[in-house]
Design a protein around this nucleic acid. Structure first.
Lengths: 203, 203
DNA sequence: CGATGTAACTTAACAGTGTTAAGAATGGGG
DNA sequence: CCCCATTCTTAACACTGTTAAGTTACATCG
């Protein structure tokens, strides 16, 4: 079997190999399909070996997600750096957020749609927060900029940011989770949500 | 003669007992905690007995959800009947939808948040649709009324309805699924989302 | 060189899950 | 009275995450 043939091959980057295998399965088939035994089979080790490198399935999955959500942070930051008015920056950030969700549906799902004990632990919000959380923080800053610039009605920043988050999370999660629903053309719906929200908050 | 009828009545009784037990567990602990064996223990029958009354766990759960979502339909219909301008009716319908989600979090979750094969079957949208689907249809009608009355900007009804759905689903699902997140005061956030969306769509 | 300790890995098992196949019991109809 | 259908149960399969204990390989030390 693969077990003895495998022995000669790598044994240092095993942790990375586990991570790679897990990501591959997770991206292709999602959370439900990601099992420790499947990962083990893929890397040709016994299932329990994984526990020598990761505390449990949650930690493995969180690490897989952290990788991806770093890219969300990057995308939002990029939106900021391309310049433009605060409102333009905010708009770009929102589109980047939605785009991220649509191109990483399974990541988005476990992190934002049904996060119950899958990646986020209770009290995860209390401290520095996950990468996804940090991306939301950036949006908050962007919102504050818009208020300061007068392009968005003055009011509680947190309330405004969370209102925006609700809208874009809503469209993102609906598109991801209800694939069979007869949505109108995707791009048009996204634009409608973003523009409606921005207009609703404008001065 | 009443014998066979009595049998049938008793059979219906057991079916209802299963449904009651399932609902009780589901409402209290949610989908993950709802297991066939737990239901069986509660009604004091063997687990396999349930399969004589329900095809599988999905069908059992769907029936539990159908019960509840009928009440959502009722709530939206009530909002309609209390009268007021089309926009007032729409507003009331949106608040009723969010209220329903918050008071039936587990139902809302399996039906709208992570519906993958749990209650909704693929192609469920194609036909008459589930009760939750019917509630959404009512909202669409309400939207059409607002457009006709000129209180909402003219445009594609479907796009507008789905935009609204995205927003209110967004706030509902965030509040349900991210209990630990430091949201602003719940009522204020809901109002902000609804009013922002309405204003964003107004003429 | 040989013993020893340890790190890496595996096997076996536990307590769950949904679900199916096959066997047991109960009681009415011929 | 016996048969048979309906109803229910027992046993099992194929999974799941996870832990405890056992094995093996190897580096270090006396």
């Amino acid at each position: 079997m693969g077990i003895t043939e495998r022995r000669e091959r790598e044994k240092e980057n095993l942790r990375q190999e586990i991570l790679d295998a897990a990501r591959e399965i997770f991206v292709a088939e999602g959370y439900e399909a990601l099992s420790m035994r499947k990962v083990a089979e893929k890397i040709e080790y016994s299932p329990t070996t994984i526990y020598l490198y990761f505390k449990d399935k949650t930690e493995l999955l969180r690490e897989v997600c952290e990788e991806a959500f770093t890219r969300l942070g990057d995308a939002v930051r990029d939106a900021k750096e391309t310049g433009g008015s605060p409102l333009e920056v905010l708009r770009k950030g929102l589109y980047a957020y939605i785009d991220f969700g649509l191109s990483h549906p399974h990541h988005y799902e476990v992190a934002f749609v049904s996060p119950t004990d899958k990646v986020m632990k209770p009290n995860d919000y209390q401290y520095e927060g996950s990468a996804g959380q940090r991306a939301f923080e950036m949006l908050s800053v962007s919102v504050a900029d818009c208020i300061a610039a007068g392009s968005i009605r003055s009011g509680d920043v947190a309330t405004t940011a969370q209102t925006i988050w609700a809208s874009i999370h809503g469209v993102t999660s609906l598109l991801i989770m209800h694939e069979d629903f007869p949505f109108v053309e995707q791009k048009a719906l996204i634009e409608s949500v973003v523009e409606t929200t921005v207009k609703g908050l404008s001065t």
